[in-house]
Design a binder for these strands. Structure first.
Length: 571
RNA sequence: GCCCCGGUGGUGUAGCCCGGUCAAACAUGCGGGCCUUUCGAGCCCGCGCCCCGGGUUCAAAUCCCGGCCGGGGCACCA
């Protein structure tokens, strides 16, 4: 045993600068030799002893000794396998039998926060060879009123993200189904029609007392239910409640409401055909069962709803799906809230649901974020109950890796300033690859003409003030003579790139002439507009993601006759 | 007020269920270097974390209790 202890003590000492830590040594020994665990108590003094001896040796002695008793230590080493971000296995998941669903209310655009549930649902369904269902939970024609356009957008955005649903359902098509189950529950005495005012009801509920309608017989309940359906009761006058435990510790789950009346719903799909509408918990509970959903992914805010919905599952003897709640996902400083977004659009602050400052999927797409980047981000964030606020850097880093190889390079000069160059009297064609790592993609050409200025960016002015020489990238080296906000004067120095490198001269981009280009840069709540010149040879197309060298990656948003508009993605 | 969740470097995640191989991993960020006709990419080095306090144990990021902090729910919203 002493030998074993000595070995680990030496290893520990060698690994940690000559000083072994007895606790770590014991841990290591017991970790790798579980059969010694019962003897832990005897081991401690022994280890302390040996560690003390080891620590009094010099580093060289330790190493020599270790080499002598355990030479393998020096052979193995390294081999650090990188494990990819991967989702953990799903509980109770059987191959081919996993059915997940994404159930948005089409009352606003799909955003990154919603995407978390969608991506997880899709990824797991795919992983287990199951089915992914899109269900529009559009049962509130009043407060969170669905709008036709969002039904389309959600499908579009989902497909853009690569999450094509296997089935699409609309809760608003399924009212008859909810009615049937509601009647069933009324007959079973598990639900009742409550005509209390909400204040009255809340008071009783908080005291744990039943409402007077609760224990009326099923015949009466069905009679009342008719009156809800046929219009005898008006909006706000009656509601179907699910019986629960009146003393449930959380008053919020007691006797929760299942269906209510909306007088003139004017629902975008169902019109005025129905006046009794289910609430979220009722519709969702019924649908998840009816559609055979096995695994539910949803936000933490729904944790309590599971408790509510389980009552129905218990009454019908159904098995509740595996429900996984995740925390909220947001991006640093980006507004995701539908109501705030809507308000901002109405006030004219945002350009629309795809304003690049927003966190909607459409906005991210418009900025040049790739769907894979969003998926990767969400998968790396994983299933966690705590909220996650991702930084832009993080998303940008993932996205950059994806777009760097595909984005062609161009020179864009923001806030151009003319630079007059003396001392070079021939035309000179700069030939620059579209992508430095992929010359096979071709070249772009920038022609220098004597007597005509080239344009450089105001952003580089500081650099020019500090340097005596500078290289115009892919052209030649110049000596700076005069610098002002209006004009820069320079003198040709040399052509060779090597000279610039040798002297570590800074390199800036430039443009002999160009087309007008504006770049929209989202900066927090501001949308900064930068205007400048894009090299005239740039054959960019709408939707293309390119890199403006030394400026950043952008997505081309519009190409007009005389002007290109781009949206800034990230550095 | 009542009821649920959570808390690991600046940020995000892994580890926690089942205590030891965690002197805590990965990515991003930041600092430095190499390479490179971009301040891009790539490569190398460095920085930086278990919310606090008790308890259990030979041993706690991990289990238990208390506190603090954060998020969410308490709608005839989803």
């Amino acid at each position: 045993m002493e030998k074993v202890v000595l070995k680990y003590a030496l290893i520990n000492a060698v690994q940690h600068g000559g000083k072994a830590n007895p606790k770590a040594v014991i841990g290591k020994i017991l970790g790798e030799n579980p059969e010694l665990r019962p003897k832990a108590r005897e081991l401690v003094p022994l280890v302390n002893d040996i560690v003390e001896k080891v620590n009094s040796m010099s580093k060289e002695e330790q190493e020599t000794k270790l080499r002598e008793i355990y030479p393998e230590f020096f052979e193995v080493k390294e081999k650090k396998e990188e494990k990819k971000h991967e989702l953990p296995p799903l509980p109770k998941a059987e191959k081919g039998k996993v059915i997940t669903r994404f159930a948005p209310n089409p009352d606003g655009a799909f955003h990154l926060g919603n995407a978390r549930a969608a991506v997880l649902s899709y990824e797991y369904a795919k992983r287990y060879g199951g089915k992914f269902i899109l269900r529009f939970d559009d049962t509130d024609p009043k407060v969170k009123r669905p709008e036709p356009i969002f039904y389309e957008w959600i499908i579009e955005d989902l497909e853009w993200l690569g999450l094509k649903p296997d089935e699409i359902h609309h809760a608003s098509d399924r009212l008859e189904i909810y009615y049937r189950y509601a009647e069933e529950l009324l007959k079973m005495g598990k639900a009742y029609v409550c005509t209390c005012s909400s204040e009255q009801f809340r008071k009783r509920r908080d005291e744990g007392k039943p409402c007077p309608h609760r224990d009326l017989p099923p015949e009466v309940q069905l009679e009342e239910w008719r009156k809800m359906l046929d219009g005898t009761y008006k909006e706000g006058e009656a509601v179907v409640r699910i019986k629960t435990d009146l003393n449930h510790p959380n008053p919020a789950v007691r006797e929760w409401p299942a269906l209510r009346i909306i007088d003139n719903p004017d629902h975008p799909r169902a019109g005025d055909k129905y006046r009794v509408w289910p609430l979220y918990n009722f519709a969702s509970a019924i649908d998840d069962h009816e559609l055979g959903v096995t695994h539910i992914f949803r936000g933490q805010e729904h944790a309590e709803n599971e408790t509510r919905q389980r009552y129905i599952y218990r009454y019908f003897g159904w098995e509740y799906p595996v429900a996984i709640q995740h925390g909220r996902l947001s991006i640093e400083g980006v507004i995701l809230s539908k109501s705030k977004t809507r308000r901002g659009i109405q006030e004219g602050k945002y350009l629309g649901w795809d304003d690049p400052r927003l966190g909607t999927i459409r906005a991210l797409r418009r900025r040049g974020i790739l769907p894979e980047a969003i998926r990767e981000l969400i998968i790396s964030v994983g299933i966690k109950k705590s909220d996650a606020t991702i930084s832009w850097d993080n998303l940008a880093a993932i996205n950059r890796k994806l777009i760097d190889p595909i984005a062609n390079r161009y020179f864009f000069v923001a806030d151009p300033i003319p630079m007059e160059i003396k001392g070079f009297n021939e035309e000179f064609m700069a030939k620059v690859p579209l992508h430095p790592d992929h010359p096979e993609r071709g070249y772009r050409e920038l022609k220098f003409i004597p007597e005509k200025p080239v344009y450089i960016s105001k952003d580089d002015l500081e650099l020019l003030k500090k340097s005596e020489y500078i290289r115009l990238k892919d052209l030649f080296n110049v000596k700076i003579l005069e610098v002002s906000e209006k004009k820069v004067t320079a003198e040709f120095d040399s052509i060779e790139y090597e000279k610039a490198r040798e002297h570590r001269w800074h390199m800036i981009h430039w443009v002999p002439e160009g087309k007008l280009c504006e770049v929209l840069i989202p900066e927090g709540d501001e949308l900064v507009l930068r205007e400048g010149l894009l090299e005239s040879d740039a054959n960019v197309k709408v939707d293309e993601i390119v890199q403006f060298e030394r400026f950043g990656f952008v997505r081309i948003d519009a190409v007009e006759e005389e002007k290109v508009r781009a949206i800034f993605a990230h550095k």
